[in-house]
Design a binder for these strands. Structure first.
Length: 296
DNA sequence: AGTACTACCTGGAGGC
DNA sequence: TGCCTCCAGGTAGTAC
């Protein structure tokens, strides 16, 4: 679901197309997705210009300015969140786009529906939509442009792909503790950005059982794990994210990484290395898949 | 302090 | 066909 590679795919897609837009009308559908802010705080962003898009872990940070004021719109996609952008030139009517040849069905961003919890119209006529059927996503408005300033952000460890392989290995040693390797990878205060899919993929690539106690890993195993984390996240970004059901990039396109996954959602199917059946179970309260032969 | 577990939420899949 | 139950999972909060 939206983990670091998916959020990075959204961020880079927006950075290229939506930077410079000026917000005009901000309409909240379901206030439950707002955290520590009100619909009024959102509508007060009218007139702010989008200066850049940043990301830390699974959080998208939309940097806004108006005269001396700086704000950050923080977006977390939860499990099923979609944050899409439709440029003014892509005039659409109920799922259709007007082209020179007439109206044609669009494969682009979704149209507003009962799962659309925030719509942001821009002065240019462009539009952002935040859609999230399961409503695990959250939106916050913060003063300033920091990477801290709210408990959610203050708790985060370093962004996973901001670390070198050796720094990541050190981090895993210092913050490993007496819990499963998978629990450590999922702990956003250790490392920000890894979720259930990439945790399983990283453990497989490092040939480490996800239920191994982290503090008992050898040095070489930690190094393999650090390398694997960076590798699987890098592949995910290169493939524009993993789409199982809901994830789409800012332009509405699905990611291509699902076909590159080696263990996630493949319990019972043959291991791509040894051909023995993959095991499935619960580790750190999450559905987990691993190869009992290849991962020790 | 560190670790473990549950509530939140909905759509889709599977059983009968 | 339709109803029911179960499952997915990121995070905060609570329990131990």
């Amino acid at each position: 679901m939206p983990e670091l590679p998916e959020v990075e795919t959204v961020r880079s897609g927006l950075a290229g197309r939506a930077t410079g837009e000026i917000l005009e009308s901000l309409v909240v559908g379901h206030p439950g997705i707002l955290e520590d802010c009100t619909p009024r705080d959102l509508s007060d962003l009218s007139g702010f210009r989008i200066e850049r898009f940043d990301r830390i872990g699974k959080y998208l940070l939309v940097r806004l300015s108006k005269r001396p004021a700086l704000r950050t719109l923080v977006v977390h996609l939860g499990m099923s969140g979609q944050f899409t952008f439709q440029a003014a030139t892509e005039e659409s009517v109920e799922g259709f786009v007007r082209m020179p040849s007439g109206y044609v069905k669009t494969k682009g961003p979704p149209e507003p529906d009962r799962h659309t919890h925030l719509a942001m119209g821009c002065r240019s006529g462009a539009r952002f939509l935040f859609r999230d059927p399961r409503r695990f996503g959250r939106i916050l408005v913060l003063d300033g442009w920091g990477y801290t300033g709210h408990p959610r952000l203050d708790r985060l460890g370093p962004d996973a792909i901001s670390l070198s392989e050796s720094a990541l290995a050190v981090r895993l040693r210092e913050r490993g503790g007496s819990r499963a390797v998978k629990a450590v990878l999922l702990d956003q205060s250790v490392l920000a950005g890894v979720g259930n899919i990439y945790a399983d993929e990283a453990c497989f690539e490092a040939r480490i059982r996800p239920d191994r106690i982290a503090s008992r890993l050898t040095g070489p195993a930690r190094t393999r794990l650090a390398r694997a984390v960076l590798a699987v996240l890098g592949r995910g970004i290169a493939n524009a994210g993993t789409t199982f059901r809901d994830f789409v990039a800012a332009d509405g396109e699905a990611g291509r990484n699902a076909e590159d996954l080696r263990v996630y959602a493949r319990a019972g199917e043959p291991c791509l290395v040894c051909s023995r059946p993959l095991s499935g179970g619960i580790v750190a309260t999450r559905g987990t898949v691993w190869c009992p032969h290849c991962q020790k």
